[in-house]
Design a protein around this nucleic acid. Structure first.
Length: 273
DNA sequence: CCGGATGTTCACCT
DNA sequence: GAGGTGAACATCCG
Protein backbone atom coordinates (compact mmCIF):
# COMPACT_ATOMS: atom_id res chain seq x y z
CA UNK A 1 0.00 0.00 0.00
CA UNK A 2 0.88 3.33 -0.75
CA UNK A 3 2.54 5.53 1.78
CA UNK A 4 3.42 9.00 0.55
CA UNK A 5 6.28 7.82 -1.66
CA UNK A 6 4.00 5.53 -3.62
CA UNK A 7 1.32 8.20 -3.88
CA UNK A 8 3.96 10.60 -5.17
CA UNK A 9 4.79 8.16 -7.93
CA UNK A 10 1.08 7.91 -8.72
CA UNK A 11 0.98 11.69 -8.91
CA UNK A 12 3.76 11.69 -11.46
CA UNK A 13 1.92 9.03 -13.39
CA UNK A 14 -1.23 11.15 -13.27
CA UNK A 15 0.64 14.04 -14.88
CA UNK A 16 0.23 12.12 -18.12
CA UNK A 17 -3.50 12.62 -17.85
CA UNK A 18 -3.45 16.41 -17.70
CA UNK A 19 -5.18 18.35 -20.45
CA UNK A 20 -6.70 15.29 -22.04
CA UNK A 21 -10.44 15.40 -22.66
CA UNK A 22 -12.44 12.91 -20.66
CA UNK A 23 -14.89 11.01 -22.84
CA UNK A 24 -16.21 8.29 -20.57
CA UNK A 25 -16.31 7.59 -16.84
CA UNK A 26 -17.19 4.44 -14.96
CA UNK A 27 -17.48 4.22 -11.16
CA UNK A 28 -18.90 0.74 -10.67
CA UNK A 29 -18.51 0.48 -6.89
CA UNK A 30 -20.80 2.86 -4.96
CA UNK A 31 -19.26 1.74 -1.68
CA UNK A 32 -15.93 3.17 -2.83
CA UNK A 33 -17.41 6.65 -3.24
CA UNK A 34 -17.23 8.56 0.04
CA UNK A 35 -19.25 11.39 1.59
CA UNK A 36 -22.48 10.27 -0.05
CA UNK A 37 -21.00 10.76 -3.49
CA UNK A 38 -22.96 9.06 -6.26
CA UNK A 39 -21.60 7.46 -9.40
CA UNK A 40 -23.80 9.77 -11.41
CA UNK A 41 -22.21 12.80 -9.75
CA UNK A 42 -18.72 11.53 -10.50
CA UNK A 43 -19.60 10.98 -14.13
CA UNK A 44 -21.23 14.38 -14.29
CA UNK A 45 -18.23 16.37 -13.02
CA UNK A 46 -15.71 14.49 -15.16
CA UNK A 47 -17.28 13.81 -18.54
CA UNK A 48 -16.29 16.32 -21.18
CA UNK A 49 -13.79 18.00 -18.84
CA UNK A 50 -10.05 17.70 -18.27
CA UNK A 51 -7.54 17.69 -15.43
CA UNK A 52 -5.47 20.82 -14.91
CA UNK A 53 -3.12 19.63 -12.19
CA UNK A 54 -2.10 16.62 -10.11
CA UNK A 55 -1.25 17.49 -6.51
CA UNK A 56 -0.48 15.55 -3.39
CA UNK A 57 -0.52 16.09 0.35
CA UNK A 58 0.56 13.09 2.36
CA UNK A 59 -1.22 10.06 0.99
CA UNK A 60 -3.98 12.07 -0.70
CA UNK A 61 -3.79 12.53 -4.46
CA UNK A 62 -5.78 15.46 -5.82
CA UNK A 63 -6.67 16.01 -9.45
CA UNK A 64 -7.96 19.49 -10.25
CA UNK A 65 -10.84 19.33 -12.71
CA UNK A 66 -11.05 22.40 -14.94
CA UNK A 67 -14.32 24.22 -14.22
CA UNK A 68 -15.12 21.55 -11.68
CA UNK A 69 -14.33 20.27 -8.20
CA UNK A 70 -11.18 18.51 -7.05
CA UNK A 71 -11.08 14.74 -7.46
CA UNK A 72 -9.57 13.22 -4.32
CA UNK A 73 -8.10 9.73 -4.40
CA UNK A 74 -7.17 7.75 -1.27
CA UNK A 75 -5.39 4.50 -2.01
CA UNK A 76 -5.73 2.70 1.28
CA UNK A 77 -3.46 -0.29 1.56
CA UNK A 78 -3.88 -1.93 -1.84
CA UNK A 79 -4.94 0.90 -4.12
CA UNK A 80 -3.04 1.54 -7.33
CA UNK A 81 -3.22 3.91 -10.24
CA UNK A 82 -2.98 2.74 -13.81
CA UNK A 83 -2.56 5.15 -16.70
CA UNK A 84 -2.69 3.98 -20.28
CA UNK A 85 -2.02 0.47 -19.05
CA UNK A 86 1.12 1.49 -17.14
CA UNK A 87 1.24 0.93 -13.40
CA UNK A 88 4.17 3.28 -13.01
CA UNK A 89 7.36 3.11 -11.06
CA UNK A 90 6.07 1.30 -7.99
CA UNK A 91 7.26 -2.22 -7.50
CA UNK A 92 7.01 -4.75 -4.75
CA UNK A 93 3.54 -3.91 -3.55
CA UNK A 94 1.41 -6.65 -2.09
CA UNK A 95 -0.33 -7.25 -5.37
CA UNK A 96 2.10 -7.36 -8.24
CA UNK A 97 1.44 -5.42 -11.42
CA UNK A 98 0.57 -8.60 -13.26
CA UNK A 99 -2.31 -9.34 -10.95
CA UNK A 100 -5.14 -6.96 -11.56
CA UNK A 101 -8.62 -8.40 -11.53
CA UNK A 102 -11.31 -6.55 -13.43
CA UNK A 103 -13.45 -6.62 -10.31
CA UNK A 104 -10.89 -4.49 -8.47
CA UNK A 105 -11.23 -1.52 -10.81
CA UNK A 106 -13.09 1.14 -8.81
CA UNK A 107 -12.84 4.02 -11.28
CA UNK A 108 -12.13 4.24 -14.98
CA UNK A 109 -11.63 7.53 -16.81
CA UNK A 110 -11.38 7.13 -20.57
CA UNK A 111 -9.94 9.93 -22.66
CA UNK A 112 -11.02 10.81 -26.17
CA UNK A 113 -7.56 9.81 -27.43
CA UNK A 114 -8.21 6.18 -26.54
CA UNK A 115 -6.12 6.13 -23.36
CA UNK A 116 -7.42 5.79 -19.84
CA UNK A 117 -6.73 6.24 -16.15
CA UNK A 118 -7.92 3.59 -13.72
CA UNK A 119 -7.93 3.26 -9.98
CA UNK A 120 -7.58 -0.33 -8.85
CA UNK A 121 -8.07 -1.49 -5.27
CA UNK A 122 -8.53 -5.13 -4.31
CA UNK A 123 -9.34 -4.59 -0.66
CA UNK A 124 -11.46 -1.44 -1.05
CA UNK A 125 -9.64 0.30 1.77
CA UNK A 126 -9.18 3.42 -0.30
CA UNK A 127 -11.84 5.77 -1.58
CA UNK A 128 -12.88 8.57 -3.89
CA UNK A 129 -14.12 12.00 -2.85
CA UNK A 130 -14.90 15.32 -4.44
CA UNK A 131 -13.35 18.43 -2.91
CA UNK A 132 -11.52 16.55 -0.16
CA UNK A 133 -10.87 18.55 2.98
CA UNK A 134 -7.20 19.35 2.54
CA UNK A 135 -7.14 21.24 5.82
CA UNK A 136 -7.82 17.98 7.67
CA UNK A 137 -4.26 16.96 6.92
CA UNK A 138 -1.13 18.10 8.68
CA UNK A 139 1.88 19.39 6.76
CA UNK A 140 3.36 16.93 4.28
CA UNK A 141 6.23 14.99 5.81
CA UNK A 142 8.50 15.84 2.88
CA UNK A 143 8.28 19.57 3.55
CA UNK A 144 7.52 19.82 7.25
CA UNK A 145 9.80 22.31 8.96
CA UNK A 146 11.63 21.60 12.16
CA UNK A 147 9.54 24.24 13.86
CA UNK A 148 6.29 22.64 12.70
CA UNK A 149 7.53 19.25 13.83
CA UNK A 150 8.36 20.68 17.24
CA UNK A 151 4.83 22.04 17.62
CA UNK A 152 3.31 18.73 16.53
CA UNK A 153 5.35 16.77 19.06
CA UNK A 154 4.86 19.21 21.92
CA UNK A 155 1.08 18.96 21.64
CA UNK A 156 0.83 15.30 22.55
CA UNK A 157 2.12 12.84 25.04
CA UNK A 158 0.91 9.92 22.93
CA UNK A 159 3.58 7.49 21.74
CA UNK A 160 5.95 9.14 19.27
CA UNK A 161 5.13 6.70 16.50
CA UNK A 162 1.37 7.21 16.90
CA UNK A 163 1.81 10.97 16.55
CA UNK A 164 4.02 10.67 13.47
CA UNK A 165 1.46 8.40 11.80
CA UNK A 166 -1.51 10.63 12.64
CA UNK A 167 -2.34 12.14 9.25
CA UNK A 168 -4.16 15.08 10.86
CA UNK A 169 -0.92 16.11 12.51
CA UNK A 170 1.67 15.05 9.93
CA UNK A 171 0.68 13.75 6.51
CA UNK A 172 2.37 11.00 4.60
CA UNK A 173 4.17 8.63 6.91
CA UNK A 174 2.80 5.10 7.19
CA UNK A 175 3.87 2.12 9.20
CA UNK A 176 7.04 1.24 7.29
CA UNK A 177 8.39 4.75 6.78
CA UNK A 178 7.76 5.63 10.42
CA UNK A 179 9.62 2.61 11.75
CA UNK A 180 12.47 3.36 9.35
CA UNK A 181 12.70 7.03 10.33
CA UNK A 182 12.64 6.28 14.06
CA UNK A 183 15.28 3.63 13.63
CA UNK A 184 17.47 6.07 11.71
CA UNK A 185 16.94 8.70 14.39
CA UNK A 186 17.70 6.24 17.17
CA UNK A 187 14.42 7.03 18.94
CA UNK A 188 12.13 4.56 20.68
CA UNK A 189 8.66 4.47 19.03
CA UNK A 190 6.92 4.43 22.39
CA UNK A 191 8.50 7.58 23.81
CA UNK A 192 5.93 10.21 24.75
CA UNK A 193 6.03 12.66 21.82
CA UNK A 194 6.39 15.72 24.01
CA UNK A 195 9.27 14.14 25.86
CA UNK A 196 11.84 14.77 23.13
CA UNK A 197 14.48 17.41 23.68
CA UNK A 198 15.66 19.87 21.03
CA UNK A 199 18.55 17.72 19.86
CA UNK A 200 16.29 14.70 19.47
CA UNK A 201 13.76 16.68 17.46
CA UNK A 202 16.52 17.84 15.16
CA UNK A 203 17.67 14.27 14.76
CA UNK A 204 14.14 13.10 14.00
CA UNK A 205 13.54 15.87 11.49
CA UNK A 206 16.71 14.94 9.65
CA UNK A 207 15.90 11.24 9.81
CA UNK A 208 12.44 11.76 8.29
CA UNK A 209 13.92 13.73 5.40
CA UNK A 210 16.73 11.24 4.89
CA UNK A 211 14.30 8.34 4.92
CA UNK A 212 12.06 9.97 2.32
CA UNK A 213 15.01 10.94 0.12
CA UNK A 214 16.72 7.55 0.26
CA UNK A 215 13.63 5.37 -0.02
CA UNK A 216 12.26 7.68 -2.68
CA UNK A 217 15.39 7.16 -4.75
CA UNK A 218 15.31 3.43 -4.19
CA UNK A 219 11.72 3.16 -5.32
CA UNK A 220 9.35 3.16 -2.38
CA UNK A 221 8.44 2.70 1.24
CA UNK A 222 9.39 -0.96 1.18
CA UNK A 223 13.03 -0.20 0.30
CA UNK A 224 14.15 0.93 3.75
CA UNK A 225 17.10 -0.71 5.49
CA UNK A 226 14.89 -1.95 8.30
CA UNK A 227 12.09 -3.42 6.18
CA UNK A 228 13.71 -6.75 5.29
CA UNK A 229 14.33 -7.37 8.99
CA UNK A 230 10.78 -6.71 10.17
CA UNK A 231 10.05 -10.33 10.93
CA UNK A 232 10.64 -12.88 13.69
CA UNK A 233 14.35 -13.47 13.95
CA UNK A 234 15.14 -10.13 12.30
CA UNK A 235 18.21 -8.24 13.48
CA UNK A 236 19.18 -4.58 13.48
CA UNK A 237 21.06 -4.05 10.21
CA UNK A 238 23.42 -1.67 11.99
CA UNK A 239 24.21 -3.49 15.24
CA UNK A 240 23.18 -7.08 14.59
CA UNK A 241 21.10 -7.10 17.75
CA UNK A 242 17.72 -8.87 17.50
CA UNK A 243 14.88 -6.48 16.72
CA UNK A 244 11.93 -6.21 19.06
CA UNK A 245 8.27 -6.09 18.17
CA UNK A 246 5.55 -3.97 19.74
CA UNK A 247 2.07 -2.81 18.83
CA UNK A 248 1.88 0.97 18.83
CA UNK A 249 -0.97 3.01 17.44
CA UNK A 250 -2.55 -0.28 16.52
CA UNK A 251 0.24 -1.17 14.16
CA UNK A 252 3.03 -3.70 14.29
CA UNK A 253 6.20 -1.89 15.25
CA UNK A 254 9.78 -3.12 14.88
CA UNK A 255 12.72 -1.38 16.48
CA UNK A 256 16.29 -1.96 17.57
CA UNK A 257 16.60 -2.04 21.37
CA UNK A 258 20.31 -1.35 20.98
CA UNK A 259 19.76 2.01 19.28
CA UNK A 260 16.26 3.07 20.31
CA UNK A 261 15.97 3.44 24.07
CA UNK A 262 12.70 4.03 25.91
CA UNK A 263 14.20 6.81 28.02
CA UNK A 264 15.88 10.03 26.89
CA UNK A 265 19.17 9.20 28.53
CA UNK A 266 21.09 6.78 26.44
CA UNK A 267 24.52 5.31 26.21
CA UNK A 268 26.96 7.32 28.23
CA UNK A 269 26.75 7.29 31.97
CA UNK A 270 25.64 10.73 32.98
CA UNK A 271 24.87 10.05 36.61
CA UNK A 272 26.68 12.43 38.93
CA UNK A 273 28.20 11.29 42.19
C1' DC B 1 -6.66 -23.18 8.74
C1' DC B 2 -4.85 -19.04 10.96
C1' DG B 3 -2.64 -14.73 11.37
C1' DG B 4 -0.84 -10.81 9.40
C1' DA B 5 -0.28 -7.14 5.77
C1' DT B 6 2.31 -0.31 3.16
C1' DG B 7 -4.66 2.43 5.82
C1' DT B 8 -8.71 4.75 7.57
C1' DT B 9 -12.78 5.14 10.22
C1' DC B 10 -15.86 4.14 13.78
C1' DA B 11 -17.85 2.34 18.05
C1' DC B 12 -16.68 1.53 22.57
C1' DC B 13 -13.77 1.66 26.64
C1' DT B 14 -10.51 3.67 30.19
C1' DG C 1 -10.78 15.31 26.03
C1' DA C 2 -7.04 12.12 24.95
C1' DG C 3 -5.76 7.57 23.78
C1' DG C 4 -6.20 2.70 23.34
C1' DT C 5 -8.47 -1.47 21.34
C1' DG C 6 -10.92 -4.08 18.15
C1' DA C 7 -13.70 -4.41 14.16
C1' DA C 8 -14.69 -3.61 9.43
C1' DC C 9 -13.38 -3.51 4.53
C1' DA C 10 -11.33 -8.09 0.83
C1' DT C 11 -7.50 -10.55 -0.76
C1' DC C 12 -3.24 -12.82 -0.79
C1' DC C 13 0.77 -15.01 1.45
C1' DG C 14 3.52 -17.77 4.60
Amino acid sequence: MPEMLEVESYRRLALRCLQRTIAEVDAPDPWYLKDGLSAAAVVDVLRGRRFDAARRTGKLLMLDIRDGPVLGLHFGMTGRLVVDGDVGAVDGLLYGPSRIAAAWVRLTVRFDDGGAMAMVDARRLGGITLDPDETALGPDAAVVTRKQLTTILDRSRAPLKAVLMDQRRLAGLGNLLTDEALWRAGLHPGRPANDLDAAEITKLHKAIRATLRICGQRGGSHTGDLVPHRQPGGVCPRTGVPLERLTIGGRTTWFSPARQHPSPRRGASVEPL
